[in-house]
């Protein structure tokens, strides 16, 4: 059972990452490959405040959101100068920078040693340190992220995001200052990734930079491409499948060491097969 809880928590974390990235990539059509950077910023913000200052977990989450949002705003302004393939490559560059900061700013992050001893939260009498209780907390965060994203996607704002994806110049011709819309969704998306990072840090109780590489961004991209761009439901299904896939391999009798190696191969292969036969993903209404 414990094992199922752990998988379910991971599923919640990746669902949050998928949903939030989908707002930028699927809805707005901006191929961001820097999502793991915001995920990492949230994780580190929470880990550092919790271990060094012993503040409340929720204060750590809030701090992660604020820092991620601020950095996303700055990055978003730079990224606004690019579009299409260049956008993807420049955003990837930001992930590389974020990773090397985590790796080299020893005073703050302890570099490759990572930060151990991150506690799980407890509020008054509610103790979230068991896997089950932590799962409850993760689900609550996921529901919040889902509801906010859904509200955004269904709003007039969400429609403008799609307009930007389809034809940014025409959207401007109808009176939208698209820069503000792109920045707003980029910041919201980064904030949600930071929440996922906080939950992750508190869940595993130890973080190091290796979780927040470009590969992780690509993995989150794989989730949303798999589930379907501009479908929130798709992102959740994508997360479910890609989190469970390696476990399925284990159950299929692959030894753990091989299963781990096979993971990447299988992700790659399934993505290629999906793109060949259903480029809009499982639930997607839109293909890149």
């Amino acid at each position: 059972m414990e094992y199922a809880y752990q998988l379910a928590i991971l599923f919640c974390i990746y669902s949050m990452l998928g949903i939030s990235l989908n707002l930028v990539v699927g809805y707005t059509g901006l191929l961001s490959s820097t999502h793991a950077a915001f995920y990492g910023i949230g994780a580190y913000a929470t880990a550092i405040t919790l271990t060094a200052y012993g503040v409340n977990f929720f204060a750590g989450v809030a701090l992660g959101i604020v820092i991620s949002a601020g950095i996303a705003l700055a990055i978003g302004i730079v990224l606004n100068r690019f579009s299409g393939d260049y956008y993807a490559i420049v955003s990837l560059g930001f992930n590389v920078i974020a990773y090397s900061v985590m790796l080299n700013w020893h005073e703050l992050t302890r570099g490759p040693l990572g930060i151990p001893g991150i506690s799980r939260p407890s509020v008054y009498r509610l103790d979230f340190s068991s896997n089950f209780m932590f799962l409850v907390l993760s689900v609550l965060f996921l529901v919040a992220v889902w509801l906010i994203s859904r509200f955004i996607a269904m709003s007039s704002f969400g429609r403008v995001l799609k307009g930007i994806r389809e034809d940014e110049a025409a959207t401007q011709a109808f009176g939208y200052n698209t820069l503000y819309f792109k920045l707003a969704i980029f910041v919201v998306s980064a904030s949600m990734a930071a929440v996922a990072g906080s939950v992750f840090a508190s869940y595993v109780t130890f973080i190091d930079p290796s979780t927040f590489t470009v590969m992780e961004s690509v993995f989150i991209l794989a989730i949303i491409i798999f589930g379907g761009l501009s479908s929130l439901k798709g992102s959740v299904i994508g997360a479910l499948i890609l989190v469970l896939l390696p476990e399925a391999l284990r159950f299929a009798g692959f030894p753990a060491s091989i299963a781990a190696q096979m993971r990447q191969v299988i992700y790659g292969a399934t993505l290629i097969i999906l793109m060949l036969f259903r480029p809009q993903g499982i639930f997607g209404e839109f293909k890149l």
């Binding site: 429609r159 799609k162 307009g163 994806r165 389809e166 034809d167 025409a170 959207t171 209404e285 839109f286």
Partner: peptide, 9 residues
């Protein structure tokens, strides 16, 4: 002149 719609909307 060259129709510009939001195609996938």
């Amino acid at each position: 002149q060259e129709v510009r719609l939001f195609e996938q909307m």
